[in-house]
Amino acid sequence: MSPIREAFAALKCRGRGGFIPFITAGDPDIATTELLLIELAAAGADIIELGVPFSDPVADGETIQRASERALRKGVTLRDVLTCVARAKQHIDVPIVLFSYFNPLLRFGEDRLANEAKEAGVDAVLVTDLIPEEAQTWIEILVQRGLEPIFLVAPTTSDQRLKEIARQARGFIYAVSRAGVTGARDEMTGDAEALVKRVRSVSDLPVAVGFGISTAEQIRQVWHFAEAAAIGSAIVGEIEKLAGSADLVDRIGEFARSLLAPKTNDSPQQGTLPSRAQR
């Protein structure tokens, strides 16, 4: 069983949904990224998504755009990101999903990337701007090396394509909660739940819901209908706010813990949860 499938199997036993934080590699710097990976694992992350910075992140909102810019200003390369994963993986065994746009991977070389990512301890790769129709060679290369290709599905994805994507995907399916780019939103729409239902009808893979999820309350809402919630911009935004603080890593750890297990009396939003979310 792959580490990702194992992570989802373990969640079933523990009786809670999965927590999948996203951070941009190299923000604020690559040494801190290594510490953040270790800290997020300690805070209870079930899987971690690690963003490869790119100059033209069309699927990302402003928070992650700025994180990418900061990382690129530090000169962070894909090779640095892999080295960082390898070092962190000496301390943690949480599965890591590399989250990237296609061009940096293409330039690195698809074969070389698959080899070196596997060696570094990467478990899966999600390419934001690569749909399965354009990814046949890519999927073969990954699967051959024992890496899992993760694909996105969106509320706009047709049933026919949903079936095809489910056939190609491994590990889990990443359901985009709503139309738009990454970034925190105050409210969740019904789109995500409807989409997850459609995924269920064509696939047995676990489903993670992401894009726009930023609070402990929203994570719990997601857990009612999907196996895991992915949280990106909220955490990246905290990292941005804490830039330069000596205790940045600890405080991100605290933030992650607060998302995962809010203390009831500390969580003013608790009372406003819809009743089904309190079961």
Binding site: V58, F102, D129, E134, L152, V153, A154, T156, S158
Partner: peptide, 14 residues
Amino acid sequence: GGRYVPEILVAPLE
């Protein structure tokens, strides 16, 4: 050529 886009844009492109 081809279509290298985030999934959300596939439907409107089709």
